[in-house]
């Protein structure tokens, strides 16, 4: 049986050229262009996707390295007809401008709330073992891997705080 990767629940065969990154596999081979290429070097976060529950930069990993993995992209989080709470919150809070970093921000934020729920500390956490709340400072540090050149950060934080409050994080 061919080796496959599951993308948003659908299995896809791993590409032949091992040089193809997970990002280029999504964007080019699968035409899932919601995941963006901003720097191709792990320096901007626009390519953030969720692999087996963890957010990663899809530009710095080869498609071939993900045999059997479960990948969720922005297209897998929600659709225009059925957006996820995070997508809706970005819309309502104007947590974007040009929109190019946005799918990466939303994938990142979605996974991030899970990390907070797990009690994982961040560089902004007062203590390593205390309870973690989705405060502005925590969100800002945890979202610093997603650059937004339009400068929508303040609205991005507002969007995420709203979702966190709804989810009781």
């Amino acid at each position: 049986m061919a080796e496959t990767i599951s993308i948003n629940g659908t299995a896809h065969p791993i590409p032949d050229d091992p040089r193809i990154t997970l990002l280029d596999f999504l964007r080019h081979d699968l035409r899932l262009t919601g995941t963006k290429k901003g720097c191709d070097h792990g320096q901007c976060g626009a390519c953030t996707v969720i692999v087996n529950g963890m957010r990663i930069n899809s530009c710095l990993t080869l498609a071939a390295m993900h045999e059997g993995d479960e990948v969720t992209t922005i297209e897998g989080l929600g659709t225009p007809d059925a957006p996820s709470p995070m997508q809706r919150a970005f819309l309502e809070n104007d947590g974007y401008q040009c929109g190019y970093c946005t799918p990466g921000q939303i994938c990142s934020a979605t996974a991030m709330l899970g990390e907070i729920a797990n009690g994982w500390p961040s560089d902004a956490s007062e203590t390593l073992d205390g309870p973690i709340e989705a405060t502005g400072d925590e969100i800002r540090e945890r979202m610093s891997g997603n650059l937004c050149r339009c400068g929508a950060y303040a609205n991005i934080v507002a969007a995420i705080r709203g979702v966190a409050a709804e989810e009781g994080a």
Binding site: R27, R31, L32, T33, G34, T35, K36, K37, T73, I74, E75, G78, T79, P80, P83, Q87, R88, F90, L91, E92, D94, Y96, G99, Y100, T102, P103, I106
Partner: peptide
């Protein structure tokens, strides 16, 4: 008002230059 093209942006369905099939 929220942006009229906002839903396309937050769902990754807005096509940018390199993304046309």
């Amino acid at each position: 008002l929220p942006r009229v093209e906002g839903m396309a942006k937050v769902t990754g369905t807005a096509p940018y230059a390199a993304e046309y099939p």
